[in-house]
Design a protein around this nucleic acid. Structure first.
Length: 556
RNA sequence: UGCCGAAUGGUGUAAUGGUAGCACGACUGACUCUGACUCAGUUAGUCUAGGUUCGAGUCCUAGUUCGGCAGCCA
């Protein structure tokens, strides 16, 4: 795993100090997803942080499914989550399930009861909320708060035995109903839920709450540094209370860092699940989704995501990261890996009128000019080519250096051509561009010293393969409101499908192969919709451009 | 008018009492058989008011703004 030289942040500082002071001998962190949805780029940050900080000091990281709420969880997610973590490039030491600790958690709860630190409460959920107090007023003690230990023990055992319906009773910690920290106002430790659990089946009908279960999970596994996001900050005193009062032999410590927010991106699982369930996107792995699987299908590389996350750093101040930064890391990584090739997304036919009808020349080109070791390849060239519609304008705007009547451009890796004529249909749209070529200007011959301002890409008509291109924009409209219904805020142009051509060199491209379409951007072979005779390419990220084509070209 | 936390260029971060730096973005220019890449340059910042100090982004006080917390979710 690659490491950055000057990593330092408050978490790494704490770890270093703990190590130096001998408080811990080996660092253990954990990534604890709930299997109730797919992982997104925000989780990627948590994954990178947990694995990286441990790895850097020779520690280890557990993958633990925090599966304490059977009604929301599903096996499907367990597999997907593991695939995503692996794909990101991380291997956990130990795969754990919180549900494997249910018995120990139960016994620790019994201990709490015996110590007078927990009690069974018969209040309804509504009553419980009403007596919890508010942000500015203390709560009131439950009338059941002072039940005897014996009664609590009996009731709790009967809860476990299934004698009560869902919601009839809860086990609560006995802490302080007047605490200014709402989390300490006798938080619920266990609830009754007659639900089938993916792991424990119907063995249990009471399930521990996160606030109780999580610290115990960490303690049981010997986690040293339990890293979580900021919204758990207020739970830290409760976390410590649970570990202490349950008399856990090992004491883990919780530290919180700021979540990742990306511009123009919803990150909540609730919203993402809704987009999937309502068919507004093509599944969890829709390339517009901020899920790990979405980024993977779109064509982002794990290296790009990791370097992006590392550049973000770890802080406790929140913010919103510009999506452009992620794109930057994608380009940077892909530029060294992706073979270059010419593809035409919106085709326009170009005919070289003075080129022999049946001649085909093979043009040599570098697979990747930035990495010459990647070699060269041959590209066929002949009289009729497809060029990009954008690369011809009958009436060019200022500074336009592509093709227009009378102008010369270089066909990349081939010849310089001059536009002599255009052919139009009945509506006056240009359907064909006619050019003449200069035989002395063949690329690589060194025989010519002529310079021409513009170079455009092309694909030879005879050998061209039809292909589908999917161009993406942000899924959500700029300035969307996460609180308002999302369906009305979906960017209608978030997916644009184009039908064009690729060169014969992409004949054998496989799903997830990545290419740079010269002058356009990086594309990934879509693994879901590509078939043997129909290739679909996802735009990963476009190339930057310092020239914007006039959006309202004057067509004659 | 509760508790907790955070405020540094447009964005994300660094500077742990001693020259406010880096990256992205934006804008110039050079180069270019990718208007890419690369290179050079420009732009732009310590929330406010006091205080401590030879010296404050950093420490103190007060304020302002923003975020989190009132699930039998995690």
């Amino acid at each position: 795993m690659e490491r950055s030289a000057n990593h330092s942040d408050f978490i790494r500082d704490i770890i270093r100090e703990d190590l130096e002071a001998g408080r811990v001998t080996r660092v253990v962190t954990r990534f604890p997803p709930e299997p109730n949805g797919y992982l997104h780029i925000g989780h990627a940050k948590a994954i990178c942080i947990n694995f990286d900080v441990a790895d850097e000091v020779g520690g280890k990281t557990h993958l633990r499914f925090d599966d304490t709420n059977p009604v929301k969880e599903d096996r499907e997610y367990i597999e997907a989550i593991q695939e995503d973590v692996r794909w990101l490039g991380y291997e956990w030491e130990g795969l754990y399930f919180a549900s494997d600790y249910f018995e120990e958690m139960y016994q620790r709860a019994v201990l709490l009861i015996k110590k007078g630190k927990a009690y069974v409460d018969d209040l309804t959920a509504d009553q419980l909320r009403e007596t919890r107090g508010t942000l500015t007023e203390p709560g009131q003690n439950s009338p059941y708060r002072d039940r005897s230990v014996a009664e609590n023990l009996d009731l709790f055992a009967r809860m476990r035995a299934g004698e009560f319906p869902d919601g009839a009773k809860v086990l609560r910690a006995k802490i302080d109903m007047a605490s200014p920290n709402l989390n300490l106002r006798d938080p619920v430790l266990y609830r009754i839920s007659h639900a089938v659990h993916h792991n424990t089946g119907d063995k249990w009908c009471i399930y521990p709450m996160y606030a109780y279960a999580h610290p115990l999970e960490d303690a049981i596994e010997g986690v040293t540094h339990s890293l979580c996001s900021l919204e758990f900050k207020d739970q830290r005193p409760l976390y410590d209370w649970v570990v202490r009062e349950c008399e856990m032999p090992h004491t883990p410590h919780q530290y919180e860092f700021g979540r990742l927010n990306l511009t123009n991106t919803v990150m909540s699982k609730r919203h993402l699940k809704k987009l999937v369930d309502e068919g507004l996107v093509d599944g969890w792995d829709d390339p517009r989704m901020p899920t790990i699987s979405g980024f993977r299908r779109r064509g982002f590389t794990p290296e790009a995501i990791r370097s992006f996350v590392r550049e973000l750093g770890i802080t406790v101040s929140g913010g919103e990261v510009d999506f452009k930064l992620l794109e930057h890391h994608a380009r940077q990584d892909l530029s060294l890996k992706a073979p270059r090739t010419m593809a035409v997304i919106r085709p326009l036919k170009l005919v070289i009128t003075n080129y022999p009808e049946d001649q085909v020349e093979m043009m040599e080109t570098l697979v990747n000019p930035e990495v010459p070791e990647m070699g060269t390849k041959q590209v066929p060239f002949s009289r009729e080519l497809y060029i990009e519609q954008e690369d011809f304008m009958e009436v060019p705007p200022p500074k336009y250096r592509r093709l227009y009547p009378g102008n010369e451009v270089r066909l990349k890796d081939a010849y310089i051509v001059r536009c002599t004529d255009v052919v139009k249909d009945a509506e006056g749209n240009v359907t064909e561009v006619h050019c003449t070529y200069d035989p002395d200007t063949r690329s690589g011959t060194g025989s010519n010293t002529r310079k021409v301002k513009g170079t455009i890409h092309w694909v030879d008509c005879r050998s061209a393969l039809p292909a589908e291109f999917r161009l993406y924009e942000p899924l959500l409209l700029a300035g969307y409101d996460a609180e308002a219904p999302l369906e009305a805020q979906i960017n209608p142009e978030s997916l644009q499908v184009c039908h064009g051509y690729i060169g014969a060199d992409l004949q054998d491209a496989k799903p997830q192969d990545k290419f740079q379409f010269v002058r356009q951007g990086y594309f990934n072979v879509d693994p879901k919709h590509t078939t043997a005779d129909h290739k679909v390419f996802n735009l990963i990220v476009s190339l930057k451009s310092s020239f914007k084509v006039d959006p309202v070209p004057a067509q004659g």
